[in-house]
Computed example of a mutant assay.
Amino acid sequence: MAAWTRVTGKKRTRQFGVTMGSGILVCQRVGKSLKKKLKFPVTCGSKEGILHKDRYKRGEPCILSDGQWFTPNDFEKFGGKEKNKKWKISIMYSQVPLLTFIQEGFLSSPSFKIKRLQDQEPECGKKLIRTRSNTKHEKNSVVSTVMPEEDSLVIKRVFRGDTFEVSCFRGQGVLHVSRFATETCGKCIRTQDAWLTPKDFLNQNKAEGHWRLDITSRSYSLGKLIMSRVLEPHMVNCKCPICTEDPLHLLDQKNDDVCFKCKHDGDLVCCEKCPRSFHHHCHKPVLEDDMIGDHWTCCYCKAVTAKRNRSS
């Protein structure tokens, strides 16, 4: 694979591995031709596709490969580079990472993560509908949607925003509304150690309980939050990536959607042992690509492991 260097003043900084004296000139020549194209071939790992620039600029799934449309994030996973979570480096044109063309001004850099969630999960969260329960008391029951409008408005005023703290017996967590789907689909509750579905969170803290009654926030049960439409379950036959348990989407659910340090999204590196994610420059020490393997663990997990080894 060819490598490219960027020259800043008199200092040459090495990027993407091996240096190449005329690399920046070659990049500019390829980049100028790229700027005129409406679509162009890209690769990621063993996968090939065609990137359509009009869809790319709108933040839509823009890479056509094997008859499917992918966002850059999903194409990175499709190509087997999901652990990196840095599609701008993983996806290449003419053996040059897209990041190089973005940095040199030949390609824009739209945001895909939020758009992707909005595109793929728009309708299923807009209606309260029939949902199935695994408990013997509510099997195939219908969730009641009847609540006085005044009570519903009061609850909605209390629960503004996408996150709120929840508890179940002695368990504590933070529920993310945008991740909520059903009791068994959608890892929407972030605990200190993992992302869990409501059912998993219940089983971890009160095995014989009922998730709609026993998981609460500010004295309100999740059942009441559903009735007031603070939470909106997906339909039984919902085809969104969460409910169909799309492997690409399940990978996203295991780790945070934003950087643990700066709380912003972007190109994130995911820890194998905990739910934390980091930008390369936010992690301490700062991460280089050759430091990240398939089973990378963050500095926090390494510190815990080191402490255990010392105590033993």
Rank of each mutant, 00 (worst) to 15 (best):
V26G: 08
A2C: 09
A303T: 07
S22K: 15
K139T: 14
K126E: 14
S65L: 01
C282R: 08
S228G: 12
W296S: 04
G79P: 03
S277P: 02
Q204E: 07
I63F: 03
G59Q: 06
L222I: 05
G173P: 11
E245A: 13
L99V: 00
N203E: 15
R229S: 14
F112Q: 10
K57C: 13
D162Y: 05
S178C: 10
E150G: 00
T43L: 04
K127V: 04
K206A: 11
G79N: 01
M20V: 05
R29C: 11
C274V: 07
G67N: 07
L287K: 01
K127S: 07
K39S: 13
N134P: 04
S108I: 03
I129F: 03
W87L: 04
S111T: 14
C274L: 10
T184R: 05
K32G: 02
D151E: 15
L250N: 09
M1S: 15
K156F: 03
K199I: 07
D256R: 09
K254R: 08
T197Y: 00
G105Y: 04
E149A: 12
D252A: 07
D66V: 09
E208R: 05
T145G: 15
N84Y: 13
K83F: 12
N203A: 10
S152L: 10
K224F: 08
A194R: 10
G9M: 01
N73L: 11
I102K: 09
T13R: 06
K32H: 06
I226R: 00
H234F: 07
C238F: 00
C240W: 02
R58V: 13
T305G: 02
D290I: 03
T13G: 10
L38S: 06
T13Y: 13
K35H: 13
R116C: 11
P198R: 01
R116W: 10
M291D: 10
T244H: 05
H137P: 04
